[in-house]
Computed example of a mutant assay.
Amino acid sequence: MTNTEHEIIYRVLGSDEWAEALASGQYAGAPHDIADGFIHFSTIDTLAATLALHYTKRDGLKLLHVPVAPIKAKLKWEPARGGTLFPHLYDVLAVAHVTRVDDLPLDANGVHILPEDLQQTQ
């Protein structure tokens, strides 16, 4: 799947970060996003690896579903992790652009459980 075929991208963040975003109406990113100058997102193809690499055994996470269309002008697809293209948002994320939020519980081994409709695509 190429970057132009992705209609939805995903952001993993802590419940506390999401609560702050809801209160302010926008999400500016985690400290590493702010340092990098953009908000890191994943595609459905990279989501499981992102969780394993950056969020291992971390509880209390949320998964934001964000359509590409309304943020397309500020979104750049840039190589990371061996040249794989990742979506990077060079702007704050308006809460209004988030169409769905899921909890990411941990299984008995500390691995995040994706929502059923996303598991089928992994």
Rank of each mutant, 00 (worst) to 15 (best):
S24R: 15
G29I: 02
F38N: 13
I34H: 05
L61M: 12
Y27Q: 01
D91M: 04
S15V: 02
Q120F: 07
E20V: 05
S15Q: 09
E116S: 14
G110K: 07
Y90Q: 02
D91V: 06
A21F: 02
M1R: 11
G83H: 03
G82I: 06
D33S: 02
Q119G: 10
D103M: 11
G25Y: 13
R100W: 00
L104K: 01
R81V: 06
L85D: 03
A96G: 06
L93K: 13
G83Q: 11
V68C: 12
K74F: 09
D107C: 03
V66E: 05
A108F: 01
Q119H: 08
L63R: 11
E17N: 12
D36P: 00
R81L: 07
Y27V: 12
V92W: 12
G14K: 11
I9F: 02
R11Y: 09
I8H: 06
E5P: 01
G60M: 10
H112C: 03
A80E: 08
L51A: 10
K72P: 00
P67F: 09
L53S: 13
F86G: 00
Q26S: 13
N109T: 04
Q26G: 11
L53G: 13
E20Y: 02
A69M: 14
Y27M: 14
Q119T: 15
L85T: 03
E78D: 13
D103K: 09
V95H: 13
L75P: 03
P87I: 10
P67G: 10
M1L: 07
L114P: 05
F86T: 00
H32F: 11
H32A: 01
D117A: 12
T2D: 14
P31Q: 04
A69L: 08
L53E: 07
T43F: 05
D45M: 03
Q122G: 09
L106E: 00
G29F: 04
V92F: 15
P87C: 13
L61Q: 05
F86P: 02
W77A: 07
P31D: 10
E17Q: 05
T56H: 09
H32V: 08
H88D: 04
I71Y: 03
T99V: 15
V95S: 12
T121K: 15
H32Q: 05
L61D: 03
D117V: 08
D59N: 09
A108Q: 04
L85M: 13
P70L: 12
R11C: 03
H40I: 00
L47I: 00
M1E: 11
L114N: 01
P105V: 00
E17H: 11
L104S: 02
V12K: 04
R81F: 04
I9G: 04
S42E: 10
P67L: 11
T99E: 15
S15G: 15
T121W: 05
